[in-house]
Design a protein around this nucleic acid. Structure first.
Length: 346
DNA sequence: GACCCGTGGGT
DNA sequence: TACCCAAGGGT
């Protein structure tokens, strides 16, 4: 019987993916791909990755950019702290590592946005170091092949999985092996309906031997997601719309949004009076829902045409942008949808 | 340890 | 439809 790793490596050479744009690239590109791929599927990432590399072809270019430019490239991808941390890390690399992506695991791990698994993935893929990763794919694969019970979010379960990942890690062909784990997880050992007949380690898979493929990995405990309501004020002066920069902490940190009135923050009329806004036309648009992982947001957009741009909302952190220009800014997906609807209505 | 942080695809 | 959860990390 061949070892676990040798079977995966052989499988990867025949059946794995070999055309991903970051494969076989330098540490900067591997790093960027690993950050974009956190909690995000390959098909979603590819076009973002290509636009990002076209605008920021190297670490120096990324470090020299503004956070706003970086976030504009991240717009729609979600988890925007990834973009902010990526930018911060690029500046740290310029200042403390002479602009060269660090060569040591410990130095890589210190960079913002890079944890144990991502640091290991970069070392394995860019530097061919024997380092174990533990992402969603590996967790699922090992939970089944080793027959490990319990939710991977549990500390003890996660430690068991890390232990197995380290024990199975080969010394050679580490980039191929690491890619094999992820390609196997994405295409064979999938969450639903895994293709066990195509799996190179099916013969000694504990979940298969004990008929627990459907039960493993143990799913996360379910929790009810709360629902919230909010109003977005689409203040328009001709084709210009008012956007405000959000604080870096919290949802959509550092992105640009129209003024927002959450539940309990008063009514539209109060906002307008507080800010000295004279409205010439008011249209309540259709409510829509935006679903996050941890809550559901009901959004009511209110279109407010103003006669002139009020002085009191032209402070720092606020900007009037042509709607077309706003679509190219660092905006979250629901704001993009509202702006696209606006343009259609013109 | 628990919670926060986005969005889209698969079932 | 509703639900799960992705190449996780930060606080």
């Amino acid at each position: 019987m061949h070892s676990f790793s040798s079977r995966l490596i052989r499988w990867q050479r025949r059946h794995g993916r070999h055309d991903l744009p970051w494969q076989g690239q330098d540490a900067y590109r591997v790093w960027l791909s690993e950050i974009m791929l956190q909690q995000t599927q390959v098909a979603t990432v590819i076009s973002y990755y290509q636009r990002f590399i076209a605008s920021f072809p190297n670490i120096a270019a990324l470090a020299a950019a503004t956070e706003d430019e970086v976030l504009a490239h991240w717009s729609g991808l979600g988890y925007y702290a990834r973009g902010r941390n990526l930018h911060k890390a690029a500046q740290i690399i310029v200042e403390k590592h002479n602009g060269e992506f660090p060569r040591e695991f410990e130095q890589i791990l210190e960079l913002p946005g890079i944890g144990r698994s991502t640091a290991a993935a970069i070392c394995a893929q860019a530097y061919h170091e024997s380092r174990a990763i533990l992402d969603g794919n590996v967790k699922r694969l090992l939970a089944r092949w080793c027959g490990i019970e319990g939710w991977a979010g549990n500390k003890k379960v996660e430690e068991k999985l890390w232990q197995q990942a380290e024990a199975l890690m080969p010394r050679r062909n580490v980039a191929t092996y690491t890619q094999a784990l992820m390609d196997m997880g994405a295409t064979v050992c999938t969450r639903g309906k895994p293709k066990c007949g195509e799996c190179p380690v099916q013969t000694d898979c504990v979940a298969r031997q004990t008929d627990r493929i459907a039960e493993l990995p143990t799913p996360r405990p379910t929790k009810a997601v709360p629902e919230r309501h909010t109003t977005f004020l689409l203040l328009m002066s001709g084709r210009d719309i008012l956007l405000e920069k959000r604080p870096s902490s919290g949802i959509w940190g550092g992105l640009w949004c129209p003024p927002q009135l959450d539940d309990g923050q008063g009514i539209v009329a109060d906002y307008l009076q507080r800010n000295g806004v004279e409205v010439s036309e008011r249209v309540e648009l259709e409510e829509f829902t935006h679903t996050f992982t941890h809550f559901k947001l009901h959004i009511t957009p209110v279109l407010l045409q103003v006669a002139h741009k009020p002085m009191r909302v032209q402070q720092a952190g606020s900007v009037w942008l042509d709607v077309e220009e706003a679509l190219r800014a660092a905006i979250p997906t629901p704001v993009r949808k509202m702006l696209e609807n606006l343009i259609r209505s013109f």
